[in-house]
Amino acid sequence: MKERKGLIIGSVILIIIFIGMLIKGEPSKNIMVWIAAILTLSIYSFLYRDNIFYKFAEHLFVGVSVGYSVSVVYQNAFIRRVFDPLFITRTYIVEGQFHILPFLAVVIPTLIGLLMVSVFTKRQAWLIRIPIAFVVGSYAGMSISPSFQANIFEQTRSTLHIALSISSFIMIFGVITTLVYFFFSKEHKGFLGRTANVGIWFIMIAFGASFGYTVMARISLLIGRMNFLLYDWLGVIK
């Protein structure tokens, strides 16, 4: 009962503020801005509790995002790499001559990819392992060199860029102790345990700093949405 009373009072206050803003400001005349504003408010209604407005906006968001992502992948994978070379530019025909290699370079991955559909059959479902194996193998092969180059060589080189300063010492000390914390082949006891403990402190500092950074990024997005509501939609801010 108390909750309902609070909800009614809260809603009335919000409606009064909204009407006041509509009268005082210059509301947008663009229908798309109104739709975007209503969807924004629907999503923020989740701050009270899960409700039909939020669920509507959430499902719309999922539908739009998936539809968008699928069409982008469809375009990158199929239109540019399969449909276009096979039927539009015909890369396999050079000076009127048919060349088998460019033709196979498009047809083979398409056929391997089509094996994904075999999962819908009962007896040939194992064939899906072939495209999966191909993708897993290529990404495994691809991930070795960049991870070595960017994450091991480059990070070690930057760490060992020693200068006579406290910062430089903290950097080297922090990297070594953090690495020691992730060394699980020996029990963290004695000297190793104490070093790993210092590693945890560094990790905590890093997580705290990342958390603070993320909070600021989210707040910045919130300011952006508020700006949209008050400037673009209601025209209260000028």
Binding site: V73, Y74, N76, A77, F78, R81, V82, A105, I108, P109, T110, I112, G113, L114, M116, V117, P131, F134, V135, S138, Y139
Partner: peptide, 8 residues
């Protein structure tokens, strides 16, 4: 090829 196959 991996991009095409992953697309499927």
């Amino acid at each position: 090829w991996a991009i095409i196959i992953a697309g499927f």
